[in-house]
Amino acid sequence: MSNAPALAEGFPDLSSLRIARESHWGRWLTAIIILAIVVMIGRAFAQGQIEWSYVGRFLTAPVIVQGIVNTMVMAVLGMALGIVLGIIVAIMRLSPNPVLKSVAAGYTWLFRGTPLILQLLLWFNLALVFPTIGIPGVWTARAVDVMTPFLAALLGLGINQGAYTSEVMRAGLLSVDIGQYEAAQAIGMGRLHALRRIVLPQAMRVVLPPLGNEFIGLVKATSLASVIQYPEVLHNAENIYYANSRVIELLIVAGLWYLLVVSILTPLQMLLERRFARGMVRLGR
């Protein structure tokens, strides 16, 4: 200490001064303005030509509740189909076999490149092209009997979702270090065996968060199935307003239910991300 050089003059001692808290008055002002705008919009809605009694009356109507249940069932099943297809197609896309690679690329191109509503309508109206379907000699059926609104919606939504999911899965598979794959090969695993045991489990931890996001989008995409008569919540709300002309009121009912579902799914997705991020930290070197 006695050997330290003397400090230069001219710099005051601030160590005893406290740092004042910032007032952030700009933030308060902005918040008040935004709140005022929200209140104004709310008042306009409350006083507008919307009969809120209809909203209250139909919010828990059995046909609406059944509709949102059907929405969720289709979203879950459609996502499941989309994930299964997505994994298969992603693996095909990364295969050394050029035939598999082209089929996978073609599938992704076709089903991402056409509107979902078109796909739904084509599935539902399959009988225009294939009046009967089945395996010749084993089982045949009329396409219109097999292709119910439920099945058409499931195929349309699931196969479309698979095209998007396959890209997420492909990114996930590519994100796994190639050394993992080589280490699996070095202990004698074949390509598919290595994918199943080593690469996919690591890829899943990366892709599950974006898949949660896709799922939330799919919940709302199910509303397109209303045009093929699948009785999800929008379809049922429409039936009500076709009878009583209360268009906006019933759409608000459907909108509130979608909002509720997404409000539940969003924190669930964050929980999922956090849980797998813990795993990710474990994965770090």
Binding site: A183, A184, Q202
Partner: peptide
């Protein structure tokens, strides 16, 4: 490949 074992520069242990 079963007759050879390999040890990699970056270990490549399966993290999961």
């Amino acid at each position: 490949r079963l007759k050879c074992g390999m040890v990699f520069q970056r270990f490549n242990l399966f993290p999961h």
